[in-house]
Write a protein that binds this DNA or RNA. Structure first.
Lengths: 150, 150
DNA sequence: ACAATATACTTATCATGATAAGCATATTAC
DNA sequence: GTAATATGCTTATCATGATAAGTATATTGT
């Protein structure tokens, strides 16, 4: 997360540019705005999720499982689609199992692996969460100008 | 952070739109891209900072202290400029003190508060870190198109 | 076949974000 | 002046990210 509430003005960036001439004022300004806006949106979404006893990561995991129609995924297959570490994935899957959103099935050919399926409760959670997720995003995106630094 | 490596294609978003008609495909697509790009940049910066035994937050704190020329700030004044919680601010300031980047001085009128000053070591750290910070941002921003989902 | 390596997942530990509650001091209301 | 409230910071505890190292099973090379 990028925590700075008020981004530096163009004047301030230009003063930094005098001390560090290789610094590109426009690029740095754009990057700070990118990080700040995304952080504000991520905050809103985190708040939305935690109000539903959920999290960004738990949400993305069940979206990914849900999107796969044919086969059941394993933890490492989900891991390839999300950049979190293995231990975080394992812990989060365990939490999803504990809250009965997913179940683990034996893998048919690899004793180390488990196949992961969404439960009806997990599917229902996803359906219940998606509308508010979109709404949160849209509320944020339609007021984006007001979060601008300049 | 937003962890999804491959953003949904327009077709996939349109399929969601059929299930959730109030969902605006363009806005949601833009928001996911915003979060993903910012997360990638934040990752790069985190990696840069941790290679220098530092962090985003420690960096922002010393930037803010450095920017203030006239008076020494207190923890709560820095807190107004950064959206982190009070305990995190207190802990991070303590870490900055332990590594001799800042010193606490008695507040002249409020016994609860402390005035915070950058040490020469803290100033030197900031000077040492800034060029690589800009470079990391610029390297990222100039390849932004390649991080695009579409 | 079997040793070496790779893969799937777990365990242990740390870092850094949060909230709730606490203490001391300041400020405000009367 | 003193009670009530607010403010500045700390302590305790939790959540959730990371890495390093461990176990079991699979795969590869010879």
């Amino acid at each position: 997360m990028f925590f700075l509430k008020e981004l530096p003005t163009r004047e301030i960036l230009e003063r930094y540019h005098e001390r560090f001439p290789e610094m590109n004022v426009d690029m740095v300004g754009d990057a700070l705005l990118l990080m700040r806006q995304a952080s504000l949106l991520l905050r809103q979404l985190d708040e939305y999720f935690s109000g539903h006893d959920f999290s960004q990561l738990r949400f993305l995991i069940i979206v990914i499982i849900d999107r796969e129609q044919e086969t059941l995924l394993t933890a490492s297959e989900i891991l390839k689609k999300l950049d979190v570490s293995g231990p975080v994935m394992a812990r989060t899957l365990k939490a999803l199992e504990a809250s009965q959103m997913i179940v683990f099935h034996e893998h048919e050919s690899d004793k180390r692996a488990k196949r992961i399926a969404l439960t009806p409760k997990g599917k229902a959670k996803l359906q219940a969460i998606l509308p508010g997720y979109y709404e949160t995003i849209e509320r944020f995106m339609s007021t984006l100008g007001q979060h601008d630094a300049s």
